[in-house]
């Protein structure tokens, strides 16, 4: 419960953060809200030699709408997303997701960029980003969500690269995100999100594999007129979830179908 020793520096801008990362070398890690990294360090599952603290990088804390897109700075905290009128108006599903992350303490610390960079299979925002084809913008490039989440905790980010922004398409039609979890503050054992867009339904799944999944089989069925019950039967198509102490693979596949159906039925 005590982290191994590490060096620490605080960055005040993106340029400074990248410079500090470069200088600190390959064992450095960025710390944003710290809600995933610090527990891992306390259990000594992560032992970064250097932490670059980006909490003072104010330029990355913003929410704005431009050209039909919602642009969210990486240092925007869950609580900000949940309460933002801009998010509630232009991408309400993001605000709803944010309001159900962890507990109040976690929501006031954790950040959108941190969730993306951490790439936990149980993260909620990666599912939304994947199903809506969001863009992850770093200090040097733009990466499509579909290319960003490569594997469990694995992204194409360079060691000295910083997530700066996530660009979502706006979507305010019927939507629902359901998490199956034992306790209110838990991560999803399985999550299912649905969003009606101008181009039809988008459907995404959380924690049914190493990366978030866009349920194209469900989307296609809906596009061809299937009912929610019929379409949701395709939610588990092609999935290969793992078994762990929270759920077996079978149960995850079942939950993917049940939650997708319920999300479609409850979408409003």
């Amino acid at each position: 419960m005590i982290p191994a020793a590490f060096e620490y520096s605080r960055a005040h801008s993106v340029t400074e953060a990248v410079a500090q990362l470069r200088e600190a070398g390959p064992e450095a890690k960025v710390i944003a809200g710290g809600q995933s990294l610090l527990p891992m360090m306390r259990m000594r599952l992560a032992r970064p030699a250097h932490l670059v603290d980006v909490n003072a990088v104010r330029e990355l804390d913003y929410v704005r709408v431009e050209d039909g897109h919602l642009r969210v700075g990486a240092m925007t905290r869950h609580v900000t997303l949940a309460r933002s009128e801009v998010v509630q108006r232009h991408l309400p599903l993001l605000a709803e997701m944010a309001s159900e992350v962890g507990d109040a303490q976690i929501r006031s610390r954790g950040t959108l960029g941190g969730v993306m960079a951490h790439a936990d299979a149980a993260g909620d925002y990666p599912t939304l980003a994947t199903m809506l084809d969001a863009m992850i913008v770093t200090d040097r490039r733009r990466i499509a969500a579909g290319d960003f989440f490569q594997h469990l905790f694995t992204t194409p980010l360079d060691l000295d690269e910083l997530v700066c922004e996530v660009v979502f398409p706006v979507a305010a039609g019927p939507r629902r995100y359901l998490k199956f979890r034992r306790r209110l503050f838990d991560w999803a054992i399985v999550g299912a999100g649905v969003q009606r867009t101008e181009a039809g339904w988008r459907v995404g799944l959380t924690h049914v594999g190493p990366t978030p999944v866009r349920a194209r089989g469900v989307e296609a069925a809906l596009a061809s007129g299937a009912t929610p019950v019929e379409a949701a039967a395709h939610a588990s198509d092609g999935l290969e979830p793992t078994s762990d102490v929270r759920a077996t693979a079978d149960f995850r596949l079942h939950l993917a179908r049940v939650l997708t159906r319920r999300a479609l039925e409850q979408a409003a």
């Binding site: 259990m43 034992r182 306790r183 209110l184 503050f185 838990d186 102490v245 929270r246």
Partner: peptide, 15 residues
């Protein structure tokens, strides 16, 4: 297997 409070489930007032 259940060595942390993430896996050893203690319910809260919510549950």
């Amino acid at each position: 297997v259940t060595g942390t409070m993430v896996d050893y489930l203690i319910p809260t007032m919510n549950e």
